[in-house]
């Protein structure tokens, strides 16, 4: 049975902030909400769990409207940013707590706990006390606790933000694996756009309480729907449309756009003079501002009519030379 999670017109107002979202999470999908801090990501999660009540709107799983249910009847898994493992319980008791609440027999609980510990690769951790676990171990136990009662939806609120960079990459793969193995429907919240691009089936980009764009990672990256998305996801060169010499065959839609954006990796650095090809757009009036060595390339920053443009170069550029930048027409993205 397909159980899409449908969030309709969910509104919640705060003194200085209005949250207004509407989206659907598809069955067994891994969807990510990404946005800067204070954009309403965590509030959205709290509304779905029922810890906060909306002013308006509904949340449904399949045909069942759950927004009227109290928190404890919604059967949603939640992994907190700081894990919130119960310090007075052992690892096994933490994982089994949701099952115990549901009055499952002790044998079934311990069997489930052992299985889950295996899934998260912490076999034999049953009687460990929480305070002696490392950050990564706590994170896994928290994940196991959340999925133990077989929730209809798993929510993860910045689950990796307290861990160091290497562990983050490792654990996000593991979350992905568990998501697939257990056939979960997962909503993942992060402020890290790279994380979002890496693990999601689809991404929801949020800003100031509103959804800016919903799409696959590729769509969001290559076809940003708004200025904010273009700026927030990856690095972008963004110019007012009037500053870009569009080709005569450009579509009508592109001509009325307010902004044009393109990625640094699609930008080619040319030594002047350069005659543009038919599908190329040429920025000839550029000055090299600075370049930084980034290992695989040099990240170069130019100015063009007072706007900074970024491009990557294989070699260190000579500051005495004059340069031009080109970008192909189809790599341009216009923003209304």
């Amino acid at each position: 049975m397909k159980q899409d999670i449908v969030i309709r017109n969910l509104k919640k107002s705060f003194p200085e902030f209005l949250l207004d979202v509407d989206f659907t999470i598809r069955h067994r999908e891994m969807i990510t909400i990404v946005g800067p801090s204070g954009c309403g990501k965590s509030t959205t999660l709290s509304l779905i769990t029922g810890l906060i009540e909306p002013d308006q709107g509904s949340i449904a799983i399949g045909d069942e409207i759950i927004s009227d249910l109290p928190v404890w009847e919604r059967n949603i898994g939640f992994v907190f940013q700081d894990y919130a493992l119960f310090p007075h319980m052992r690892a096994a008791q933490n994982i089994g707590y949701g099952l115990k609440i549901r009055n499952r027999p002790a044998s079934e609980i311990s069997e489930a706990v052992t299985g889950l510990l295996e899934t998260i690769q912490l076999q034999g951790y049953e009687s460990r006390s929480i305070e002696h676990l490392s950050g990564g171990e706590r994170q896994r136990i928290a994940l196991a606790r959340a999925v133990a009662p077989n929730p209809r939806l798993l929510l993860l609120d910045e689950p990796l933000s307290a861990l160091d960079a290497k562990l983050r990459v490792q654990l996000r793969k593991e979350i992905q694996r568990i998501h697939h193995d257990l056939g979960l429907t997962t909503l993942y919240v992060t402020h890290d756009q790279e994380e979002a691009l890496a693990i999601s089936d689809r991404i929801i980009v949020m800003n100031q309480g509103r959804i800016e764009q919903i799409g696959t990672p590729e769509e969001v990256y290559h076809r940003p729907a708004s200025l904010f998305v273009a700026q927030f996801i990856g690095e972008s060169n963004i110019l007012p449309r009037s500053a870009v010499p569009l080709r005569p065959d450009a579509a009508e839609n592109d001509r009325i756009a307010r902004y044009v954006s393109f990625r640094p990796e699609k930008t080619t650095i040319r030594r002047a003079p350069h005659v543009p090809l038919s599908n190329e757009i040429l920025f000839d009036d550029v000055q090299l501002l600075y370049q930084e060595f980034a290992g695989q390339y040099y990240a170069c920053t130019f100015t063009h009519q007072g706007v900074q443009l970024h491009a990557y170069s294989k070699e260190r550029l000579d500051g005495k030379d004059t340069y031009m930048l080109t970008v192909e027409q189809e790599d341009l993205q216009t923003i209304v």
Binding site: T49, L51, W72, E73, N75, G77
Partner: peptide
């Protein structure tokens, strides 16, 4: 702030 919401979401009623 930390533990009560976790327990509620896991399905425990307020008194529990």
């Amino acid at each position: 702030a930390a533990y009560t919401p976790a327990a509620l979401i896991l399905g425990a009623r307020p008194f529990r």
